[in-house]
Amino acid sequence: MDGPLEVLIVEDDQRIAEINRRFTERVEGFTVAGTAHNGEEAREWLEVLQPQLVLLDIYLPDMKGIDLIWHIRRYYKNTDIILITAAGETDVVQEAMRGGVIDYIVKPIAFDRFRRSLDNYRDYRRQLERSDRMDQGQIDRLWTRANEGAASMLSKDPELMPKGIDPITLKKVTEVFEEAGEGGLTAEEVGKEIGASRSTARRYLEYLVSCQSLKADVSYGAVGRPERRYFSQGN
């Protein structure tokens, strides 16, 4: 990676924009190339700078940040986006993920969370630049890292969980996998561990798979019956 990654900050609140600028400059490998306070300014900066990364707020005075995401995806395919916003609606999170946003930070911003996001992004860029071809293991690790921000928030924030997913039960399910071996677990096995039915356990397991906190595979038992097994992303 030659030189620091250029960052465009898009934030209508000048005080928060300044915080974002100071935070960015405290993280190794990044430089703030410009700041826009509305969508029109952001489009102008994008055309001139074509930065590697945009730190974007959803609420802008002249357009929705989601519209700017799709503008970037259409015209600046080499530019990545991290959302920094007070918006926590599930539909906003989902559309951001569909638009390829690589992380989603909810205001008020904690520097440790901000730094972790930029560190992950910098490492992600470096991995992409190391070789012209990747094997399955490298792709899996890269894909997990690239998507862990928004998916992690979606899986853990009670305000964003869909109906039927209880935060306490979800925590029990995730704790089961802290002790699980490389062979993974079935929904029935997880249900026994948390004191719930197989169908309940499966609902939580599939939710965690959708959030990329777990992965799933199909195996065949002694009698040839297929069963779905779940694994932590580290296995």
Rank of each mutant, 00 (worst) to 15 (best):
5 L>T: 06
7 V>G: 01
9 I>T: 01
14 Q>R: 13
19 I>K: 12
23 F>Y: 12
27 V>A: 04
27 V>P: 00
29 G>H: 09
35 T>H: 03
36 A>C: 11
40 E>G: 13
41 E>N: 06
42 A>L: 09
52 Q>D: 13
52 Q>A: 14
54 V>G: 09
56 L>W: 03
59 Y>R: 15
60 L>G: 09
61 P>E: 07
64 K>D: 12
66 I>W: 05
67 D>H: 12
71 H>C: 03
72 I>T: 06
72 I>K: 03
74 R>P: 06
80 D>L: 02
82 I>V: 09
83 L>V: 09
87 A>D: 13
98 R>I: 13
98 R>L: 14
101 V>A: 04
102 I>M: 02
102 I>H: 01
103 D>W: 03
108 P>T: 00
119 D>H: 00
123 D>P: 02
129 E>T: 04
130 R>I: 01
130 R>V: 04
132 D>A: 06
134 M>P: 01
134 M>F: 13
136 Q>F: 14
137 G>H: 12
137 G>V: 10
139 I>C: 01
139 I>R: 04
140 D>N: 03
144 T>I: 08
144 T>C: 00
146 A>H: 11
147 N>A: 09
147 N>M: 13
152 S>L: 14
152 S>P: 03
159 E>Y: 14
160 L>W: 02
162 P>S: 07
163 K>P: 05
165 I>T: 06
168 I>F: 13
171 K>W: 10
173 V>A: 11
175 E>F: 08
175 E>C: 06
176 V>F: 12
177 F>R: 02
184 G>V: 09
184 G>I: 06
188 E>N: 10
188 E>A: 14
189 E>G: 12
190 V>T: 08
191 G>E: 04
193 E>C: 08
194 I>E: 06
195 G>A: 08
196 A>L: 12
198 R>C: 05
198 R>T: 11
205 L>C: 07
206 E>P: 02
210 S>F: 05
210 S>P: 03
210 S>Y: 05
217 D>K: 11
220 Y>D: 08
222 A>W: 12
223 V>H: 15
224 G>D: 12
230 Y>P: 11
233 Q>F: 10
234 G>V: 15
